[in-house]
């Protein structure tokens, strides 16, 4: 696959890839590394992809794999917990409540979710991919994506509910209190 399309791919996908990377890695430096590494891999291996319609899925899948690899190298392994039943009654939250928050507050709340929930929900909110494509990127069955997004929404609402009291939105992330 010739290379002149590369800048178009970068322009089309790097903002969404970076936001996905940031939700996973939780710091801008690692997010930048992951995004650049993904495009580096595209530049060196992307020409082997025969189905051009899969470029977007390829990029998100590669970034996710790179994140998992980075996590294995840098962090201690934590076994996946028993997911348990999905929450049937997540805390009530209205769109107006979300609109009052700013983007870093939403991202910080997303980053509090466990990684297995954070990844599908971030991809869902980025809107670039359908649930089938999210399943491809995360390499899990479609039903698993559905249940993880359902639980992720419940977790996110629970996190945000903790940040709001009596309709007032607290500063997030919380600042250290000074002792008087």
């Amino acid at each position: 696959m010739p290379d002149e399309v590369f800048p178009q791919l970068v322009d089309a996908y790097y903002p969404a890839l970076y936001r996905f990377a940031l939700s996973l890695a939780r710091n801008p430096a690692d997010a930048s590394d992951l995004t650049q590494q993904t495009f580096f891999l595209w530049a060196t291996k992307g020409h082997t992809l025969r189905d051009f319609t899969k470029v977007k899925t390829w990029l998100f899948t590669t970034l996710h794999r790179e994140f998992l690899g980075m996590r294995r190298r840098d962090w201690r392994q934590t076994p996946l917990e028993d997911l348990g039943p999905a929450e049937k009654d997540p805390p009530a939250l209205e769109a107006d409540g979300v609109n009052k928050l700013d983007a870093p507050q939403i991202l910080a709340a997303l980053q509090e979710l466990e990684p297995i929930y954070r990844s599908p929900l971030t991809l869902f909110y980025l809107r670039e991919l359908s649930y089938q494509e999210i399943a491809e990127v995360l390499e899990v069955p479609i039903g698993t994506v559905m249940s993880r997004i359902s639980r992720a929404k419940a977790q996110l609402r629970a996190v945000l509910a903790q940040k709001t009291t009596h309709g007032r939105i607290f500063e997030f992330p919380p600042q250290e209190r000074s002792h008087s």
């Binding site: 970068v10 936001r19 769109a95």
Partner: peptide, 27 residues
């Protein structure tokens, strides 16, 4: 859907650093 819209809009607002030149140079 209103809630999903609100979350998506907030995520899209999050600033992205200008990595374009670095990505293109590396590639």
């Amino acid at each position: 859907q209103a809630l999903d819209e609100a979350f998506s809009a907030k995520l899209a607002e999050f600033p992205v650093p200008d990595l374009r030149k670095q990505i293109l140079a590396g590639a």
